[in-house]
Design a binder for these strands. Structure first.
Length: 474
RNA sequence: GCCGGGGUGGCCGAGCGGUUAGGCGGCGGGCUGCAGACCCGCUACACGCGGGUUCGAAUCCUGCCCCCGGCUCCA
């Protein structure tokens, strides 16, 4: 039974989608006004992991992730740089998508942009006004928070809190906590026509509009980084539930914990923002993925290169077992009978596999599952060294395939498990046999030379007690 | 100020009422022509501090100390 922590109820709930096996998921994407940083990466990778696990369990996930390409920050940045706003956003959207692809993140099915959905947004706002949940004032439109009795349910924020704002907005609004659905255009700003004059959408409205357009008026999972809970998600709930007259708008709210640097949140003033593509230059994408999953998604993760190095080592261990198993399975045969010890070992392995997945059932707790992964690797390594127990290795390899699929790591390694048939395979075997004979003659020079040259060609040889395993490096 | 989240062995990090978490590092063994990797053992009778509840607490209650975050844009 899969349990999911729901920000709305602040507790673990059994995961039951609205209409299984379909799962509708909307993840808040970036505002493309600057480089994609490691904080974005944490959120992306963790949602990718969640999606992969749900798919592994047999759900059909329909995954939307938006891009907020109309926004104050974008307008200001474009003005600073003397660029057309669209040029700025296209640049960073491109970078964002590149980073996602490099990180082996499954592409969302739709990545809706605000600038492509202005008409839908205007319609949505009009409908809110017709239902008198919103009002026009000075060319802008505001949502009237007092009309929504459940405001604050998600974030715990109260309306009465002190709201410091620019005076001009305060004067337009009925209450300080009302928020803008439509902002009147100022000089030099991009604008679209609307019944209220030229302007552009407010920050929160796009997610309500685009999610309902593609997922319907109610859906299963909505999430993003923790920082979006308030005001972004709180306001989305208010707009959506008022517009559709249905509750709850979203069944499960999932929020990814902060990624910090030196224990503090990344910010421009601290100058500690770490750009994703810089890290991708130094570390393998799989290693970064493992690292991003090395703390439960709701806990804070303090970014360090030491942590990344540690993830590299763990990754190397995983790869090593995958490769050696591949090499060994190629030459083992399916047995027709197992002895007592083999059965016993197999049962131990199966128990660990069971525990591994059981841990994932507890709110996608990847870290809790890791000890079982390592235990499985150790069990498999022993069998590899002894070169026996085919079912154990084959079963372990199947598990590693599942692991690879869910974690999105080493997928290439695990997929090409098939034997290298044909001439190439036979030639490699022949060369290994030649080398074996040279080793018997203690001709280390030739033996080492063969190993070295094959390695240069991408064929890695590993000598075992009484045989030599080989695999092709990817 | 108000509202949240935390403080676990050298480091990273699970656990949240009772069975060894685990990884990394370090040390010592084993395997080995070499290389790579792997295996075993130790480091580890750790849980911010003080009270309390309990047969039993890292886990629950209480007081205190410290760190981080939100309340303004943010994944």
């Amino acid at each position: 039974m899969l349990k999911v922590y729901n920000t709305l109820s602040k507790s673990l709930e059994e995961f039951i989608p609205l209409s299984p096996p379909e799962v509708k998921m909307y993840v808040c994407g970036p505002t493309p006004y600057d480089h994609t940083h490691v904080g974005h990466v944490r959120t992306i990778v963790n949602f990718d992991f969640i999606r992969r696990y749900l798919e592994f369990k047999g759900y059909e996930v329909f995954h939307i992730s938006n891009i907020t390409d109309v926004d104050d920050k974008i307008i200001n940045r474009a003005l600073e740089k003397g660029m057309y706003w669209k040029e700025l956003t296209e640049t960073y959207i491109k970078e964002y998508v590149e980073v996602m692809n490099k990180l082996n993140v499954l592409s969302p099915h739709v990545m809706p942009k605000v600038s492509d959905h202005i008409e839908d947004i205007v319609k949505f706002i009009s409908s809110l006004m017709e239902r008198s949940y919103a009002y026009e004032s000075g060319g802008s439109v505001y949502f009237e928070v007092d009309k929504f009795p459940y405001y604050g349910a998600l974030s715990g924020a109260t309306k009465e809190e002190e709201w410091e704002q620019e005076l001009e907005f305060l004067m337009e609004k009925k209450r300080p906590y009302d928020f803008a659905l439509w902002k009147k255009a100022k000089p030099k700003e991009p604008y679209w026509d609307s019944p209220w004059g030229p302007g552009r959408p407010g920050w929160h409205i796009e997610c309500s509009v685009m999610s309902s357009k593609y997922l319907g008026e109610q859906f299963d999972i909505h999430g993003g980084g923790r920082d979006l809970i308030f005001p972004h998600h709180e306001n989305e709930v208010a707009q959506s539930e008022c517009a559709f007259g249905k509750r709850p708008w979203v069944k499960y709210w999932i929020h990814i914990g902060y990624l910090t640097v030196g224990g503090e949140k990344m910010s421009k003033s601290l100058g500690n923002i770490i750009i994703a593509k810089d890290v991708l230059e130094k570390y393998d994408a799989d290693v970064i993925r493992l690292y991003m999953l090395s703390t439960h998604y709701r806990s804070p993760l303090d970014f360090t290169y030491e942590g990344l190095d540690q993830a590299s080592k763990n990754y190397a261990r995983i790869l090593n077992t995958i490769r050696l198993t591949k090499g060994l399975l190629r030459e083992m045969e399916v047995p027709s009978k197992l002895n007592e010890e083999e059965i016993r070992e197999l049962k131990v392995l199966q128990k660990e596999v069971e525990r591994f997945f059981k841990s994932l059932e507890e709110d996608f707790n990847a870290m809790k599952a890791m000890p079982y992964l390592f235990s499985i690797l150790t069990i498999m390594n022993k069998a590899i060294m002894e070169g026996k127990n085919y079912p154990l290795l084959a079963y372990g390899f199947s598990f590693l395939k599942s692991f690879s699929r869910v974690f999105g790591v080493a997928e290439g390694e695990v997929l090409e498990a098939a034997k290298i048939e044909g001439l190439v395979g036979k030639l490699i075997e022949l060369i290994i046999e030649v080398r074996r004979r040279r080793r018997l003659a203690k001709d280390w020079e030739i033996a080492d030379w063969i190993r070295f040259e094959l390695n240069r060609l991408g064929v890695r040889l590993v000598d075992q007690k009484d045989k030599t395993l080989w695999f092709i490096k990817s």
